Amino acid sequence: MERVMVVRRPLAEVVAYLEDFAHAEEWDPGTVRCVRLDEGPLREGAVWRNTSRFRGRTTALRYELVVRESARLVFAGENATVTAHDDLRFTEEGVATRLTYQASLRFKGLARLASPFLRGEFERLADGVVDRLPPAAEAWRP
């Protein structure tokens, strides 16, 4: 899934907000809780436990920040049934930032059989990110 949105804040501030995956509680409609598991400055290798609700079920994934660049963040999440990959790319657009957000899920084992039937629900969640992420990032104060 891919969505493009504009956030009315400078690129560096949008990246600073999104590099802390704990903020997913504010902008991801599926996230119930997201807690950082390590300490110290945000860096590649930082990890979070993200608890999400989907179709009435709650599941937790361990996410890691695998790419941290000035205009790109990549998070990889995993548990026993799914691998998630979130790729965020940022482009300056005047005083605002254009964010291209790509998310992919790869199910494991028997769960793979259900993935074609869940696409519509994942697309709706992605639409929810477009509705929630820009105002959350614009309201954030470091």
Rank of each mutant, 00 (worst) to 15 (best):
137 A>C: 11
82 V>S: 00
58 T>G: 08
29 P>N: 08
115 S>D: 13
41 P>K: 12
30 G>N: 09
127 D>W: 11
139 A>S: 06
103 A>M: 15
106 R>N: 14
75 F>M: 02
127 D>N: 08
58 T>Y: 14
125 L>C: 10
80 A>F: 03
94 G>Y: 12
11 L>T: 08
57 R>D: 00
20 D>S: 02
98 R>H: 06
109 G>D: 08
11 L>V: 09
10 P>A: 10
63 Y>W: 14
61 L>Q: 05
142 P>A: 12
11 L>G: 05
78 E>A: 06
29 P>G: 01
97 T>A: 05
13 E>A: 09
86 D>M: 12
132 R>D: 02
31 T>W: 08
51 T>I: 03
107 F>H: 11
105 L>H: 11
44 E>N: 01
8 R>D: 15
30 G>P: 04
27 W>A: 01
126 A>T: 11
60 A>D: 12
105 L>Y: 15
61 L>H: 09
24 A>N: 10
130 V>H: 02
88 L>F: 06
44 E>D: 07
110 L>A: 13
22 A>T: 06
50 N>K: 15
32 V>N: 05
128 G>W: 05
101 Y>P: 03
96 A>V: 06
103 A>Y: 15
25 E>V: 13
86 D>C: 10
30 G>Y: 04
120 G>N: 10
88 L>H: 02
18 L>V: 10
36 R>A: 02
29 P>A: 02
45 G>L: 02
81 T>A: 06
58 T>R: 15
76 A>P: 02
136 A>V: 04
78 E>K: 10
19 E>A: 09
135 P>C: 05
106 R>C: 06
45 G>D: 06
38 D>N: 13
101 Y>C: 01
129 V>G: 01
128 G>D: 09
22 A>H: 05
7 V>H: 00
38 D>I: 12
138 E>A: 03
29 P>E: 08
55 R>P: 01
65 L>G: 01
77 G>K: 00
139 A>L: 07
121 E>R: 10
131 D>I: 12
5 M>D: 05
120 G>L: 04
63 Y>P: 01
102 Q>F: 15
79 N>A: 04
5 M>Y: 07
43 R>G: 04
11 L>E: 13
69 E>F: 03
57 R>V: 03
110 L>M: 13
5 M>F: 09
114 A>I: 10
96 A>M: 10
78 E>D: 09
50 N>R: 12
100 T>H: 05
65 L>H: 05
110 L>I: 14
68 R>H: 15
135 P>Y: 01
120 G>S: 06
62 R>W: 03
114 A>E: 13
16 A>P: 03
